[in-house]
Computed example of a mutant assay.
Amino acid sequence: MLGYFTEVNSVETVNARMGATINPRVRQVMSSLVGHLHAFVKDVQLTQEEWEYAINFLTRTGQICSDERQEFILLSDTLGVSMLVDAVNNRRPAGATENTVFGPFHVAGGPVRPMGYNVNLDGRGEKCLYRGRVVDLQGEPIAGARIDVWSDSVDGFYDVQQPNIQPKWNNRGTFITGEDGAYHYLGIKPVSYPIPDDGPVGQMLIALGRHPYRPAHMHYLIVAEGYQKLVTHIFAAGDTYLESDTVFGVKKSLILDFKKVEGDSIQWEAAFDFVLVRR
């Protein structure tokens, strides 16, 4: 019996209150969480005013969330937690395409488009041909891979951020590979943009002396039967924010030279092969 709560025995006292028959994983996770939280409070000698500010910060973070905006994901992203969870859960062998952060702007259930479709519905921005293959570690094509793509507009906003300005499904598309594992579609060369910074997370970044920008990228979600799901980006080489991405999502292997194309209808070409790992 530990007795009453004290500063010295705080962790042991709190964890001892857990029931004897609870889920073992819940016990493991919550015991560790309590231990680290209490160690943090003791380490920084958290003041009452700072604790109250933290409660208020989390309250405001929840209040600004909506179906279109997930401020807690932004908080996780900007603290590097999203990327760390992703790294822990997606360790892959050499040669496989690396995962990166999913982000808050994916929209499920988008229409499947034919290969070659132009996902840029508002007609604005520099046209880009995206092409490549989906293959396994041996370089063999993967048929039936579902490729979900999405990017920001030329103004740096996703369609869900501007529902009354951009057409629905603007710069989004879903494609299914054939027997050759190849894909190709038209979009625009993405631009760097700030994450929504008019809320608590933006205030936190200002206090930390950090900018809110992400480097230009195209999102990919690729699923194929028998293979691990791939959530990744391709980043435009030369972008100002590659080494200071506010959500820490850039990996060297995902940086791509967008090639300039001389033509009337297409200005850029982005060729990238995605390598999946069997489950």
Rank of each mutant, 00 (worst) to 15 (best):
L242C: 14
Y241A: 03
G110W: 01
P24H: 04
F235P: 04
Y53F: 07
T246S: 13
F57A: 05
V154G: 08
F157R: 14
S32D: 08
N23K: 04
K168V: 07
A20F: 04
R69Y: 15
F175V: 10
A54M: 13
I176M: 03
D155W: 04
V275T: 10
V85N: 13
Y193N: 04
L74N: 07
H217Q: 07
F258W: 08
T6V: 14
N89D: 12
S192E: 14
G103P: 04
K251H: 14
A39Y: 06
I165E: 10
M1K: 09
T59H: 07
L79N: 08
V250C: 11
G178A: 04
E98C: 12
E7M: 11
P194Y: 06
R60V: 00
L186N: 01
Y241R: 07
V201N: 11
R279P: 03
T47V: 12
V201C: 11
N120I: 00
K260H: 09
R17P: 07
N9W: 10
F57D: 09
N120A: 10
F175E: 05
Q162I: 09
Y158C: 06
H184C: 10
Q63I: 00
F72G: 06
I188C: 02
G62A: 12
Q48F: 09
I22A: 07
L74E: 02
L37R: 09
N90K: 07
P212I: 11
R27S: 13
Y220N: 05
V34L: 13
L208K: 11
E71A: 13
S82R: 02
H184T: 05
F57Y: 15
D264G: 14
K260F: 01
D152P: 03
R278N: 10
N99T: 05
H106L: 14
F274C: 06
N120P: 06
G95N: 13
L242K: 13
C128Y: 01
A270D: 00
R25W: 08
Y220K: 04
V134I: 15
A145I: 03
G199P: 01
